[in-house]
């Protein structure tokens, strides 16, 4: 099955929208944390030396957009843009406008959250939104193909980086990395799962190396046969589903799987 460009872009868009909607609603649901006294309140975050050492005009700008009320408005605007992405016809100006707004707000989210570290899922989403934004500005075949290659290469890079980092880590190299993670109650707060992997060391060792091999070898999907491609994609979906349920990092699933249609399109050309 060779997906068309429209199908590919449609699927990427769908997963991206699901991610942004979940993320926006989650942030709105904890709006109290953005009010004075909250851990995400601007009155607290603005005291970070990164902001206090900036120019007055920069601080004035952040003081306008980062307090709770304008920030919640921007979260609502993200939701509005998602609706725009779902209903607007292909190559409509609304598409470009929505991507531009999502990109700007996503970038501002990283800036606002600097003190605690930008959220991984948001950082990755900016790669996809940025590519689709540039593609929407000039939706020619060349730019579309470049945008899809960009997304496909970025996801391969993300897995490869994760795999190489694990190989650099002694614990993962010794085969204990996965077990350390799976038996940590702080990461996986289910005692049964902690105990299970504590008792089944052989299985933990196998998963440890399967994860490393999967991540390091992932870039081969760009050049391998369709069978290999689909095996990797199914393995990726299983991995992200396990991460979503085990580590409660569900947003990782939507944003990483959003890149898979680009991989399928590029690999099957």
């Amino acid at each position: 099955m060779n997906p068309s460009i429209a199908q590919t872009l449609g699927l990427i868009n769908l997963f991206l929208v699901i991610y942004v909607l979940i993320d926006s609603f989650e942030k709105i649901s904890i709006y109290k944390e953005y009010l004075a006294g909250g851990l995400l309140s601007w009155s607290l975050l603005r005291k970070n030396s990164f902001f206090t050492s900036r120019s007055e005009s920069f601080r004035n700008f952040t003081d306008i957009i980062f307090p709770a009320r304008p920030w919640m408005f921007l979260m609502a605007l993200r939701i509005f843009c998602c609706v725009g992405l779902l209903v607007s016809p292909p190559d409509s100006p609304l598409l470009g406008f929505s991507y531009a707004v999502l990109f700007i707000i996503g970038a501002l989210m990283n800036l606002r959250n600097l003190a605690y570290g930008a959220e991984t899922e948001n950082r990755f989403s900016l790669i996809i939104i940025g590519a689709l934004l540039l593609r929407s500005l000039l939706p020619t075949d060349v730019v579309t193909l470049a945008a899809l290659w960009f997304i496909a290469l970025q996801v391969c890079l993300s897995y490869l980086t994760a795999g190489v980092s694990k190989l650099k880590n002694l614990s993962w190299r010794k085969g204990n990395g996965f077990q350390d993670v799976a038996t940590s109650y702080e990461l996986v707060p289910v005692k049964k799962i902690n105990d299970f992997f504590e008792e089944h060391k052989g299985l933990s060792l196998l998963i440890n190396w399967l994860v490393i091999v999967f991540e390091c070898a992932f870039p081969v999907v760009l050049f391998a046969s369709p069978v290999v491609l689909w095996n990797f994609l199914v393995a990726g979906i299983i991995l992200h589903t396990a991460i979503a349920f085990g580590f409660r990092l569900g947003k990782f699933f939507w944003i990483w799987v959003a890149t898979y249609p680009a991989l399928i399109f590029i690999a099957q050309r």
Partner: peptide, 14 residues
């Protein structure tokens, strides 16, 4: 805006 990222998912020591 943190446009550059190194995704080292779960690689750090727990």
């Amino acid at each position: 805006f943190r446009l550059l990222s190194a995704f080292q998912l779960f690689s750090r020591k727990v």
